[in-house]
Nucleic acid binder design. Structure first.
Lengths: 312, 312
DNA sequence: GTACAGTCCAGCAACTGTTTCTACGCTGTA
DNA sequence: TACAGCGTAGAAACAGTTGCTGGACTGTAC
C-alpha cells in the first residue's frame, strides 16, 4: 500500500517544479524530500523523477500518479469535511489568505463576525496577493482564499477549486479635492500628462490600470509604483499622483478623495475559493458566510460623477 | 490529515463486525486495534464506535467515513495498478483464492502457464470456499478469487467488485458403473431411496443439490456429508453414495463413473472476481488470461445420457 | 461460572523521517 | 575556459514517534 504522505510530497514537487521548492513550502530540507521520493520510487518500483538540466522532471508515470493523488487527497478532504459537519459546533482552525485591500476592509469585519458566532473556530488571516494565494491554496497552505479578477484578465476556472463570487467592486479614478488635477476632466485623455500611482505591471491590477490608460490614448507616467492601496489613496488625496481605487476601500480610506466613475463602469470581481473537497466543510461555510455578510454591510461609495468614454 | 492505515482499520472493523475479527484478519492484537481506533477518534474529533452488547457498532459518522475510505482505497489501487501497468514485465506477488474443485483442476494449469509466461510474478494459491474467498477479497487478503454460483443461487453483483465469467460448468449425476445403482434411471425420482454424498446444506452447492432432489420429489438420504469433491467422486465410483459432480473435474477424476446429464442441463457459473481498482492491474489481467486459457484447454466430459424431467 | 469482547496501562522495539555533511552535475557568468 | 552558484543525491547517525505486545480489568452473554 502506497504511503500517502510520500504521495503528497510528489504532488508538491510536481506543483513546485523542483525538490527545493517543495522542501521550502513543506518546511523540509531538500535532502529529506529527495530521500522520501527515492523510497516512493522503491515502493512503486517505478522511476518517478528524471534529471533535466540541474533540476528534475516528473516521469509520465509520476504525472499520472500525481493525478491520482489529487483525487485521493480531494476524497480525503471530503471525508474530513463530512466529519466536521457532523460536529455540533464549528471548531478547529482555518487559514485564510487575502490580498491587501481585502485584508484592509472586509477581512476584519468578517473575522469579528466569526469570532462572535464561532468562538471555537480559530481563523488565521494571511496577506498574500492573488497568485501566491492561489498557489498556497493548492499546496494546502491555505484553506480559503479571497481572490480578485480585473476586467479582461479573467482567470480560467480550474478543476478541483470551488469559486464563489463575493462582490463586484466598482473601480474609480481617484483625484485630489484641490490642486492641479482636481478639476473635472472631460475624459481620461485629459489626464494623459498627470502623474500616476499604479500597481506593478506584473500584477493583474497593474496590467489592467495601464490598459485603461492606453485605451484612452496615453502611456501613464507612473510616479509611484506600489501595491499598497492605502499609499495610493493617500497620494491621490494629496495630489501627488492619481490612482485607480476600488470602492471597497470605503468612506474611511476614500475620505478627501474625489471619486470619478470610469467609462463602462468597470469593476473587479472578488471571489472566495476553496479546494473542492472542503466546499462543504463547516468552517469553510461559516467563513464564506461571514465574508458575504461583511461585504453586504459595507457602505459602498458612489462616484461623484462618471467619465464619458473618451476618444481612443 | 487523516491517517490512511487507521481508516483501513476502521474499514476492516466495519467488515468484520468486531474489533476482534478485524484484529484476526490483520494479525493484530485486539488491543492494538482498539488503540488505533481511539486515536482515529481523536484525530477526527468524532465518536466512531459505540458499545452494543458486548461488542461495538459503528456510529453513523463512522459508516460514512468507511464509505469514503472505500473510495480512497479503490483509488489507491487504481493508481497502483497503473504504475504496475507501466512496468515492462509483470512482476510482484498476487494471491488467488479458489474453491476445492477449481484448485484441483484449472488452478494448476493456470499456475503453470503463469510461471512460464511471467516468471517474475509470484502467485500464491489459497483454497477457500466462495463466501470466505469473497470476504477475503474485500479484506484485501486476496487479490483475485474464483467463485461459483449454482442455479437459483445467484449472488447479487456488488459495487467495487469486478466479476468476469470464466466457465459454465455442467453438473452431472454420478453413478457407479456396476452394482445396485448402476442401472439407467428413468428419472431422478427413481433414485429417491439411494444413498447420497452431498455438500453441507449451508453451502450453495449443498443447497442446490438438495433442491434438485426435492424438486424430483424426495428428500435425499445423505450418507456422506462432505465438500471434498474427490471423495464424492470416489464414493460414486465405488457405489457407496451417488453424487452430483461438475464436468470440470475432468476425465481423470471422473474415470470409472457413469455421468448422467440432469434435466434442464444445469450448470454452475464460475467467475473470476477482483476489487474494481485492480481490474487493470497487469498481474490480475495475466491471471485472468491464464485461467481462461486453462479452462479453454480443459477437456470436458460429456454425459453418457441425459435424464428426462421427472414428475414433480 | 465461564467465555468472550472491548478497554486501559505500561513498556518496549522498530521504524520513520530528519539533520548534517559531502559530493556531483549543470548553468550562466566572468 | 574557469569558476561560482544552485539543485539534487547519498551516507550516516540520530531523535522521536508510532504502534505493537502483554497483562490486568470491566462488562455482557450464554
Amino acid at each position: 500500500m502506497l504511503s500517502l504522505p510520500r504521495l503528497r510530497l510528489l504532488h508538491e514537487v510536481h506543483r513546485g517544479g523542483s525538490l527545493a521548492a517543495a522542501a521550502r513550502t513543506l518546511n523540509f530540507t531538500p535532502s529529506a524530500v529527495s530521500q522520501q521520493l527515492k523510497l516512493l520510487e522503491r515502493e512503486t518500483g517505478t522511476a518517478l523523477l528524471e534529471p533535466v538540466g540541474r533540476g528534475v522532471r516528473l516521469t509520465p508515470a509520476a504525472q499520472r500518479l500525481v493525478a491520482h493523488t489529487e483525487r485521493i487527497l480531494a476524497q480525503l478532504e471530503v471525508a474530513e469535511a463530512e466529519l466536521a459537519a457532523a460536529q455540533p459546533v464549528v471548531r478547529g482552525e482555518i487559514t485564510v489568505a487575502a490580498f491587501q485591500s481585502a485584508v484592509l476592509t472586509v477581512a476584519p469585519v468578517a473575522l469579528d463576525a466569526l469570532a462572535r458566532d464561532h468562538p471555537e473556530l480559530r481563523v488565521n488571516l494571511i496577506q498574500r496577493e492573488v497568485e501566491g494565494a492561489y498557489q498556497g491554496l493548492l499546496a494546502h497552505e491555505f484553506d480559503l482564499i479571497i481572490s480578485e479578477e480585473y476586467p479582461g484578465r479573467e482567470e480560467p476556472r480550474r478543476d478541483g477549486v470551488d469559486s464563489v463570487e463575493l462582490l463586484r467592486d466598482p473601480l474609480y479614478l481617484g483625484l485630489p479635492l484641490t490642486g492641479p488635477w482636481s478639476e473635472r476632466p472631460a475624459s481620461l485623455a485629459d489626464l494623459a500628462d498627470a502623474p500616476w500611482t499604479l500597481d506593478p505591471e506584473l500584477t493583474s491590477t497593474g496590467a489592467w490600470s495601464r490598459a485603461v490608460c492606453r485605451q484612452a490614448g496615453f502611456e501613464p507616467w507612473v510616479r509611484v509604483d506600489t501595491f499598497n492601496p492605502l499609499l495610493q489613496a493617500d497620494l491621490a488625496r494629496t495630489g501627488h499622483a492619481l490612482a485607480f481605487l476600488p470602492a471597497l476601500l470605503g468612506p474611511r480610506h476614500l475620505a478627501g478623495i474625489r471619486r470619478v466613475g470610469l467609462p463602462g463602469s468597470p469593476f473587479r470581481r472578488l471571489s472566495t475559493q476553496v479546494r473542492s473537497g472542503r466546499t462543504r466543510h463547516p468552517a469553510v461555510v461559516a467563513c464564506r458566510a461571514a465574508f458575504a455578510e461583511a461585504v453586504a454591510h459595507m457602505s459602498v461609495e458612489e462616484p461623484e460623477w462618471t467619465l464619458a468614454p473618451g476618444t481612443t
